[in-house]
Design a protein around this nucleic acid. Sequence first.
DNA 1: ACCTGAACACCGTTCAAGT
DNA 2: ACCTGAACACCGTTCAAGT
Lengths: 178, 178
Amino acid sequence: MRRLADRLGSGVMSLYWHIDTKEDVFDLALDAVLKYRGFSQTGELGEWRAEVVHMLEDWRVCMLRHPWSASLLPSRALGANMLRRLELLGSSLSRAGVADADLNVAIWSLWNHVLGATVTRASFDLSDEDKAAAQQRLTHLSERYPTIERSRLLLENDWDGTFRKGLDFLLDGLTPKL
Amino acid sequence: MRRLADRLGSGVMSLYWHIDTKEDVFDLALDAVLKYRGFSQTGELGEWRAEVVHMLEDWRVCMLRHPWSASLLPSRALGANMLRRLELLGSSLSRAGVADADLNVAIWSLWNHVLGATVTRASFDLSDEDKAAAQQRLTHLSERYPTIERSRLLLENDWDGTFRKGLDFLLDGLTPKL
DNA sequence: ACCTGAACACCGTTCAAGT
DNA sequence: ACCTGAACACCGTTCAAGT
């Protein structure tokens, strides 16, 4: 708050005219990050999968632009932009043929993938120094964690590709339901 | 820290003999939550899917037992128990036939599902009062969020089932790679 | 080796007051 | 309608000192 007021060149307590509490600032900041500047309805049938992938990739990119947003997510109310994105995702899936009974699972699973990938990336995208240290530590422990060692789980860097491929798995699993 | 010291019946500064910083306490707390009391290697072939499902459900349950653990996850180093779980998951998948090239994607996708589901659940598992309020708000906005309204996305309560079904989608998508 | 209290620099917020 | 500074209750941590 004090920092924020400084940045704005105002007195600290002036902030409290506009918002009630620090939590409110976080809610607003998170929702600002999630603002969606994409099509709101394309409706091109047959293209639902590309449409969904595009939406979710954009979602992830928005959050990665401000890495703090991932750490804000837990225990925060859903703002208007978040609702808008969920609605858009849901309507795409629905028009693609997902039955109403499966809609919740589909929406949450896809959102969870975005959320999880964002948090994971923000936590484990190591700097080069950290990577060297991790390498060191893992080599040292390679007999305890052979699979991690072999797959270079923490050193592998293609987060975009991992996200995209994982998303494909999910959508592949979802598709037979259509 | 002061609260923790009180709880332990010690002076505040005594804590600092055992740990360096508040962050360290969080790291330790998170890793304690993730302690795994399951089989370490079953190796029963053909049962890999049940094995993976069991591991991931346990993972999720552990984290839900202490809802604060979800909010600790972002920007935290991976402790020994986390590494152990990742290793175990990876080796199950590997023995099930997942190629080394796909191992990272598979591990991260499944972990992301657990993580995302945990955070989502911790954020959106509304109390009954909140649910009434949300209902109110959504009904009011139902023309803007028709799909959310129709699927009762925020009122639907079967988080366990949603987690499990989403996991099935993921594993279904993964299986053809075997 | 382990514990301690006083002190410091910080923080969010209440309150009563200003324009 | 909007801004403000003084004050309060809290917090993590340094330091120098105790056993």
